[in-house]
């Protein structure tokens, strides 16, 4: 079996698991809509900068909640079974791809719901959507790897937050700058930010590739 078909099969397995127990995804979608509803209730008018901050805060917490279960969801015996059948790099890559897919859904939904309920101040929508796509990729790679580390420790959920917030900060700073540009329709520096995001993602995925084989062995 080639690496690619392994990843495809594992990706399908993740989708099937999600489809069978819809409560996880449903819970996160409910979280997003209820948070947006709270924002809608508590603000009379949202300034563009505040809107941007709220969007990324909602997106960040929804993403962490969505990814944290990646390695906790299935018990260690079943994971051992997967590692015997598949390459560890295929396991982590399939999880990363699956999480990119889920986070894209969550973030786009947040964008749409926030836009409908609170109003949409974005003037350059394609650039904002690009920020969302790049953000989903960055969040997914970082959180998947961190959740693999945290899953090995005693209290995974707490550790997940402690480990992932400082690591995600550079991605988040660049994302906020990029999306602020999209809000005000400024074209300055945005290619630079995309390059930075791409470089961070490349470093992270290379690290996952090298380090994950040392993580899963128990």
């Amino acid at each position: 079996m080639t690496q690619f078909s392994e990843i495809a099969l594992l990706f399908k397995k993740e989708m099937m698991l999600e489809w069978r127990q819809k409560y996880a995804l449903g819970g996160i979608l409910l979280y997003v809509t209820s948070t947006v509803f709270v924002v809608y209730l508590s603000f009379v008018k949202v300034l563009p900068d505040v809107w941007n901050a709220l969007f990324w805060i909602i997106s960040l917490f929804a993403s962490i909640n969505a990814v944290v279960k990646s390695f906790v969801q299935e018990n260690s015996n079943r994971q051992l079974y997967y590692y015997q059948l598949a390459n560890p790099t295929a396991v982590i890559l399939s999880k990363i791809f699956y999480n990119i897919f889920i986070l894209l859904i969550i973030n786009l939904l947040t964008f749409i719901v926030l836009g409908l309920m609170v109003g949409n101040p974005v003037s350059n929508t394609p650039q904002y959507l690009l920020a969302i796509v790049l953000g989903s990729i960055g969040f997914s790679i970082t959180f998947t790897f961190i959740s693999a580390i945290a899953a090995k420790a005693n209290n995974a959920a707490t550790l997940m937050a402690i480990l992932s917030f400082p690591v995600i900060l550079p991605v988040l700073i660049t994302l906020i700058r990029l999306s602020k540009n999209a809000l005000q329709n400024k074209s300055s520096h945005w290619l630079n930010d995309i390059q930075t995001l791409g470089a961070i993602d490349a470093i992270l995925i290379a690290l996952c590739f090298v380090l994950f084989p040392y993580l899963w062995r128990d």
Partner: peptide, 30 residues
């Protein structure tokens, strides 16, 4: 903090070594 949350020495050493490589690689770009 990661190191504090393990009971098993070998496991603590392995996971924190992986995390240490990860954190140093983010130090240079940061």
């Amino acid at each position: 903090i990661l190191r504090m949350s393990f009971d098993d020495f070998e496991r603590r050493a392995r996971i924190s070594a992986v995390y240490s490589i990860f954190s140093f690689s983010s130090l240079v770009p940061l």
